[in-house]
């Protein structure tokens, strides 16, 4: 139970005095008031809670606060720059990569992390990397198209 937690969140330093065993998901949604990151399963199998930690996609429902100590965390709220959407966000709109929108934050963050590692992934690589993110509305085909567009 460590109490001095420091990390970067969407480019800004954060320091918190709290239990390092708490789950990142609930700290983001509660203490830090960033509700774009969603709860879907709590088991790491739907991807709705995906954020990027040092450029890697992580399920925040499986991530303890202590795990991000000193790291760089990016959430869906951190992609927009000066009121301008990130090309991935723009592509999701253009291609209609969402319906109810509940999986969307996790989808975009998973794809964003993928593009950090691999700027020009093949369609197969996209499918493979996105396979752990569930979309009940069935926006899959358009999500793939959006990621392809943003990686051109």
């Amino acid at each position: 139970m460590q109490h001095d937690i420091r990390f970067r969140l969407n480019g800004r330093p954060v320091s918190m005095d709290t239990d390092d065993q708490r789950l990142l998901l609930w700290v983001l949604r509660g203490d830090l008031e960033l509700t774009g990151t969603k709860y879907g399963c709590g088991l790491g199998i739907c991807g709705a809670c995906t954020v990027a930690v040092d450029g890697q996609a992580m399920r925040s429902c499986q991530t303890r606060l202590g795990d991000v100590q000193g790291k760089n965390v990016v959430t869906i709220e951190g992609l927009e720059r000066d009121g301008k959407l990130h090309p991935l966000q723009q592509a999701f709109i253009e291609h209609g990569g969402f319906q109810c929108g509940f999986c969307t934050s996790g989808m975009i963050m998973n794809a964003w992390s993928l593009l950090q590692q691999k700027p020009h992934p093949s369609r197969d690589a996209i499918v493979e990397e996105m396979d752990g993110n569930l979309c009940r509305c069935g926006a899959h085909q358009r999500i793939i198209a959006a990621i392809q567009e943003a990686s051109k």
Binding site: G36, F92, I93, F98
Partner: peptide
């Protein structure tokens, strides 16, 4: 027509019941 709720949904701003405080 592009959906009117698009921008809110890709930025995480769209409000669902669980996002209320």
């Amino acid at each position: 027509t592009r959906r009117l709720d698009g921008k809110d949904k890709v930025t995480g701003r769209a409000m669902y019941a669980g996002d209320l405080r």
